[in-house]
């Protein structure tokens, strides 16, 4: 799941990128509001982790601009100023959550999952499809009483397919959703991950639509 991180501290930026990737997200990092604005122009990103103190302005102003423009994507504010009044201002400006520095990486990931879940209209943390129950918080799944563990990229791919199970996702789209802008992508990366997923979930769980892309198989009626 593509997440935009707006943070100007290089170490923290790097930490967030790597950390969220390890938690099953596909984060992209920018260090200024100008870059953030460009990134938000597309609907590539599903959520934003936004620092308040940035070199070219305040994250709060950026947030207000987003909301004025009708952008409803979840925004988690990230800030050193975490007094109650600051939190209230942040939330009232349109933030969906507020995390004070220093924060726990797992907690941030959990909050992002919760926001995305709500954004999809779900309250249950787990997703069910075709006999498979997927738990995003542990990047694992359960079927027929057995636990299945996924690697971060595999899980990201599975999660993207699960968002709209019967929709066909092209290889290019999947690549875009799985990898950052500057990451080297092997030409058969998506095929490799699909192959690994099929090995864990059974060959028929993911269908290949020749010449178009991939989708999850219809649920067995019985």
């Amino acid at each position: 799941m593509r997440i935009l991180i707006v943070e100007d501290d290089p170490v923290l930026l790097n930490g967030l990128t790597v950390g969220l990737r390890l938690s099953g997200f596909s984060p992209e990092a920018v260090a200024s509001l100008a870059d953030a604005a460009t990134a938000m122009d597309s609907d590539e990103f599903r959520a934003v982790v936004l620092d308040i103190g940035l070199p070219d302005g305040s994250g709060l102003d950026f947030l207000a601009t987003l909301r004025r423009a009708g952008d409803a994507r979840p925004v988690v504010l990230l800030t050193a100023r975490d007094q109650v009044a600051d939190r209230i201002t942040g939330l009232d400006t349109g933030a969906d959550d507020y995390v004070g520095k220093p924060f726990d990486l797992h907690e941030l990931a959990a909050r992002l999952r919760a926001l995305l879940r709500r954004g999809e209209g779900r309250a249950q943390p787990s997703i069910e499809w075709n006999g498979l129950v997927v738990y995003p918080e542990t990047m694992s799944g359960k079927r027929d009483g057995g636990t299945i563990r996924f690697a971060a990229r595999e899980f990201a791919l599975l999660q993207h397919l699960l968002e709209r199970p019967t929709a066909i996702r092209s290889k290019a789209e999947l690549e875009e959703r799985l990898y950052g802008w500057n990451e080297e992508i092997e030409s058969n990366a998506v095929e490799v991950h699909v192959h690994k997923l099929r090995a864990k979930l059974g060959a028929r769980f993911i269908e290949t639509v020749r010449g178009v892309g991939y989708r999850l198989a219809e649920e067995d009626a019985g």
């Binding site: 501290d9 170490v11 923290l12 790097n14 930490g15 967030l16 790597v18 950390g19 390890l22 103190g53 990230l78 050193a80 004070g100 520095k101 220093p102 924060f103 726990d104 990486l105 797992h106």
Partner: peptide, 14 residues
Amino acid sequence: LKTPLAGLKTQAQI
């Protein structure tokens, strides 16, 4: 000071 602390904590967790 909190920003580098956040960076340190995140990197340590990683």
